[in-house]
């Protein structure tokens, strides 16, 4: 079990995270927040690249700094910007990282071959990575994070650069892996975690806003989300009056999805709120949301 106790992180006068308390057991956790909310800072503390200004992070009851290499031994990490050596082949790079991870040479050979197959790079194991697309590099990153069969797998924006097909494949891989390990997946893309995460963690104003299941978080907007078909002439009025979650064009009209606490009109259709609705609602005033891809 991985536990954060009253963790705060400051950079000079700037507070990035304040009084974070979290507990992770085996399963997939989706760390969902707009860019700049502190996801990467939190993740960097979990992988020992940053040190909390206040508080403690414990794994199985022991502070991770005391565990030192024993902790890194059970850790798999894919950073937001996954670096690689351009002239290396994925096989050579994974061999190098396997050596750094202290894996047995013969075992790692077999493991590397299995992992490259798993991420769909089985036929390019000996091609130099400088010729790879962004998605292929990201898949090498995912493979390296799983090299040591980690008990804690931390992935920072792992689907960046992956096409929809690759995203689907990635979600399947994670679901398979999640049974006997902690997987923490940071993203600002709701669909990445909506279907696979056991729990979603949302950060707002430097603290944890939610840590709950998708169903429970979505339920916070129960009976408040509606869809309505409106004419173009009414669109501006609706936009001003309600918080619009999405808009889509249908024939001559627009179908809008919005939040309201008002008495509903007969023309409106009450819908089941989704995690994306909560995300858009929660971060409505958040400046950082402007930079997020939904």
């Amino acid at each position: 079990m991985l536990v954060l106790k009253n963790v705060s992180k400051k950079f000079g006068d700037f507070t990035a995270l304040e009084d974070i308390n979290l507990e992770f057991n085996n399963g997939v956790y989706g760390l969902l927040a707009p860019n700049g909310a502190g996801k990467t800072t939190l993740i960097k503390m979990l992988v020992t690249l940053l040190f909390p200004t206040k508080g403690e992070i414990e794994y199985n009851g022991v502070e991770i700094t005391s565990l030192d290499e024993q902790y890194r031994n059970v850790l798999g990490y894919l950073p937001q910007e996954f670096g690689y050596y351009k002239n290396y082949t994925p096989e050579k790079y994974l061999n190098y990282l396997a050596a750094l991870k202290g894996l047995d040479k013969n075992e790692s050979k077999k493991r590397i071959s299995e992992l490259l197959e798993l991420v769909g790079l089985g036929d390019v194991t000996r091609k130099k990575m400088k010729k790879f697309s962004g998605g292929m590099i990201q898949r090498v990153g995912i493979a390296q994070a799983m090299l040591n069969d980690p008990k804690i797998l931390i992935l920072d924006e792992p689907t960046a650069g992956l096409d929809p097909k690759e995203r689907g494949r990635f979600r399947k891989i994670l679901t398979t892996l999640a049974r006997d390990r902690i997987i923490i997946l940071s993203t600002h893309i709701v669909s990445d975690v909506e279907s696979i995460a056991n729990e979603i963690i949302m950060i707002k104003n430097k603290t944890i806003l939610y840590k709950d299941t998708v169903t429970n978080i979505s339920a916070t907007l129960d009976r408040k989300v509606y869809e309505a078909e409106v004419a173009y002439s009414d669109l501006y009025r609706m936009r001003e009056k309600y918080q619009i979650l999405s808009e889509r064009q249908e024939r001559e009209n627009m179908t809008i999805r919005f939040i309201t606490r008002d008495q509903p009109s007969e023309k409106w259709k009450m819908v089941t709120p989704s995690l994306e609705d909560v995300f858009l609602y929660v971060y409505e005033d958040d400046d950082t949301l402007a930079g997020s891809a939904k």
Partner: peptide, 18 residues
């Protein structure tokens, strides 16, 4: 300065030991 630094730093034998 290398982008590989973060990955290498979280391995069992990390940058400082090397």
């Amino acid at each position: 300065q290398k982008t590989t630094y973060e990955v290498e730093m979280t391995c069992k034998y990390n940058f400082l030991q090397l």
